[in-house]
């Protein structure tokens, strides 16, 4: 150990194992993933490791990806739906370095997509795995901060508290005021946190053809939704679940029924609304779709 730094040479990346994690850690995570798949929506505790990026910055997703990735994989990493957000760039560069895998920004080409806060607009297919970065995996955490209590609630399928909370929303605001991390019921058994994706994305989880894996590093939990699994957003008969709608299409590619980012253009109220999913937007523009602000400088900046 001392010899390493005495020679002034930082440990070369080659001295780390393929995909950074040691094999024993990978086996531990892989066992947790198999159990997570077998019990859809149940949070499997795992001995999360310290990673070379901070907790809260995707360490759970990174550990899941590191445990499953192989040399044949093509990796896409998105944050807020975009491939070029700094943390997505950083995580993608990490895997390009430690696993020497091909990376892509194209949803269709990826075999593993690691994401924070969005599900791609393009429908995912059977050969793909979507890995979510999860900050707080426990959907009941904000109603009951104690793990000892929430674990009991899941064990007993005691989800009344969640329905009370949602109903209080309706009483106060006339609607359920949860806009992201909107809780879902998986296969009629476990209430699950979909990670802080906007509720717009919830329907994409339902009976998805892709395997969905969720990693929470700081909270040390892994959970999963297998393909073709029932994922239902919690609601009430008289207040059915609804997703966000936008009253205009993407300003660059004219896409409708996609999630849009609001971009502030000036200090006098100028705004434009563009696709949050940058790959989807680029793809559409390449196909010749043009929005009302196509050619805007923002387009080249993206």
């Amino acid at each position: 150990m001392s010899a390493q730094i005495a020679t002034d040479a930082a440990p070369a990346i080659a001295s780390y194992n393929f995909a950074y994690l040691d094999e024993q850690t990978k086996r531990m995570i892989r066992r947790a993933i198999l159990k997570a798949i077998a019990i859809p929506g149940y949070q499997v505790p795992f001995a999360s490791r310290e990673m070379p990026m901070p907790y809260g910055w995707g360490t759970g997703g990174v550990q899941v990806t590191a445990a499953i990735i192989g040399p044949e994989d093509v990796l896409k990493v998105i944050d807020q739906g975009a491939d070029d957000t700094t943390n997505a760039v950083s995580i993608r560069a990490f895997f390009a370095k430690v696993a020497n895998v091909a990376t892509t920004t194209r949803t269709m080409e990826a075999t593993i997509i690691q994401t924070r806060h969005r599900i791609p607009e393009t429908k995912l297919s059977a050969g793909q795995v979507l890995v979510y970065q999860v900050p707080i995996p426990e959907p009941l955490r904000f109603l009951e901060p104690r793990e000892t209590e929430t674990r009991k609630m899941h064990a007993l399928e005691e989800y009344g508290l969640m329905h009370v909370k949602l109903y209080e929303d309706i009483a106060r605001h006339g609607e359920i005021s949860t806009t992201y991390a909107y809780p879902v019921m998986v296969e009629g058994r476990y209430v699950m946190d979909p990670s802080p994706t906007p509720k717009f994305d919830n329907p994409k989880m339902h009976r998805s053809e892709a395997l969905q894996l969720f990693g929470a590093g700081r909270e040390k939990r892994i959970y999963a939704v297998p393909p073709f699994t029932e994922v239902v957003s919690l609601d009430f008969e008289d207040h059915p679940f609804e997703i966000q709608t936008f009253d205009r299409p993407c300003a660059l590619c004219a896409a409708e029924n996609v999630y849009l980012d609001e971009v502030v253009l000036d200090d006098s109220g100028g705004r434009m609304f563009v696709c949050s999913d940058t790959d989807h937007c680029e793809d559409r523009r390449a196909q010749g779709h043009r929005g009302e602000m196509a050619g805007h400088p923002l387009e080249t900046a993206k």
């Binding site: 393929f18 094999e23 990978k26 499953i68 192989g70 059977a126 297998p226």
Partner: peptide, 19 residues
């Protein structure tokens, strides 16, 4: 090759468990 052998087999298992 224990690293890549394990990884490849695990991916098959994961896919089989998921389907």
């Amino acid at each position: 090759n224990s690293v890549l052998g394990s990884q490849g087999l695990f991916r098959t298992l994961m896919d089989a468990m998921a389907r």
